[in-house]
Simulated scan of single mutants.
Amino acid sequence: MPKQIDIDIADGTCAATLFVPAGASSSPAVILYMDAFGPRPAMDGMAERLAGQGYAVLVPDLFYRFGTYGPFDAKTAFANAETGQFLRRMITETTQAMTAADTGAFLDALANEGFAGKVGTVGYCMGGGRALNAAAAHPDRIVAAASLHGGNLANDAPDSPAANAAKIKARVYVGVAGVDGSFPPEQSARLAQAFREAEVDHLVENYVGMKHGWCVPDHSVYDEAGAERHWKRLATLFDETLRG
């Protein structure tokens, strides 16, 4: 059964859910960084799948600073003007620096639960860049980081993952939607170049025909074949970095 935990952080209390493999007293851990629609059954199902592969999985509410909100319907939330505006505000005001700092508390929470070893990160949509920046901020603990349809990974912002590439010691996987306005081809090329120059072990992979959000089952653009492909990539990444 998943365990609900409260993580005390300087800016407040972050609610999180911890999924632990059946019968495991200790295991490698993964932090799953949510997309823009927050923790919900779709995210829980993805965390449960990773737990079934032998990983303790922490799903924190990155929007905890806003108190109670939602739930949001991933298919319709941005179509509603008021809800869309609120979501964009939450994304903007929850900065990369905030999430990078919060990740220190997430790592401590995992350690307090008995998972003090190697950690991987994976993020979707807005969580993608945060998963990569977490690896840059905590290179001593995070050994693998994955972004799926993450946006603005190599824009001109000083806090983009491309700008932080030299701080990353983890192995990195980036799955890119075939056509994604938040991560156009020129950013993909810039990100790969930044990783090469920083000597980051990485793979940036283009999912032709997939749209932004294809991995998450409650998205309108969910694609089962594309999602299964990403699960295979995650299994390889985490098996090769978190075990042993």
Rank of each mutant, 00 (worst) to 15 (best):
A131G: 15
E113M: 02
S160Q: 04
A100W: 05
A116K: 10
A144W: 08
P158K: 02
N133A: 04
M90D: 03
C125A: 11
N152C: 09
V122N: 03
H149Y: 14
F78Q: 02
D180Q: 01
R171L: 07
N155T: 09
T92E: 11
T121R: 11
D180Y: 00
D140L: 00
K169L: 06
D140P: 05
E113D: 13
L148V: 14
T121E: 12
N112W: 00
P161I: 12
F86E: 11
G104S: 13
L153F: 09
G117F: 01
K167Y: 06
V179S: 14
N133L: 11
P161S: 14
G128N: 12
I142Y: 01
G150Q: 07
R130C: 06
T92G: 00
A135C: 13
A157G: 14
K169E: 09
G127Y: 01
M126T: 12
T95P: 11
H149L: 06
D140E: 15
T103A: 13
N80I: 04
P139T: 01
Q85W: 04
I168D: 06
A97P: 03
F86D: 09
N152H: 13
A79R: 06
A146C: 15
G123A: 00
I142K: 01
A105W: 02
D102L: 01
A165V: 09
M98V: 08
F106W: 12
A165W: 05
V179P: 00
V122E: 08
F86P: 01
E82A: 15
